[in-house]
């Protein structure tokens, strides 16, 4: 009887651990079941990333639909290449979808915002988004502003 109680307690302990991990995954890290499912990769070229890093969010209308999986420099054209993994459930991104690097709040993290266009065909695995808008870099903005003021 003593051992039975002990075994029950140990079993419950391990189950608690597993449930804890699941709760942690779902409630704390916001990992959802579809998130873990199939993904496909699309690419985009940007002039300037302005601090976008791997694992940044890719969102559409504020809803996260994927993650940035890889960031590197194209050494021929000297532009930044961003590869992003998009959930399979979002397979209806049109060919003329545009991508912009946005900032969450004034000082928040960078993320990619996608906006769909009007084409009939959809982006497939490995396709490239043509229409991109680089990050707003504060120094450049100020520089432009001063330049235009000076011209006036």
């Amino acid at each position: 009887m003593r051992t039975r109680l002990m075994e029950l307690a140990v079993g419950a302990f391990i189950v608690m651990g597993i449930i804890g991990l699941i709760v942690m995954a779902l409630r704390v890290s916001g990992l959802s079941a579809t998130d873990a499912g199939d993904k496909y990769t699309i690419k985009a070229y940007f002039e300037n990333l302005g601090g976008l890093t791997e694992r940044a969010k890719v969102s559409m209308s504020g809803v996260t639909i994927g993650r940035v999986s890889k960031v590197y420099l194209d050494t021929e054209d000297y532009v930044a290449v961003v590869e992003m993994e998009i959930n399979k459930s979002m397979s209806t991104l049109t060919l003329d979808t545009s991508a912009a690097i946005l900032t969450a709040g004034l000082l928040g993290e960078k993320y990619i915002g996608l906006t769909v266009g009007a084409e009939d065909e959809y982006l497939a695995d490995g396709d490239v988004i043509e229409d991109t808008q680089s990050a707003l870099v504060l120094e450049e903005l100020i520089g432009q502003f001063l330049f235009s003021k000076a011209e006036e």
Partner: peptide
Amino acid sequence: YWGNMQASVEFYDDI
């Protein structure tokens, strides 16, 4: 509280 937590906690990197 929960939303920001979920946005920044990574399952692999943190947990």
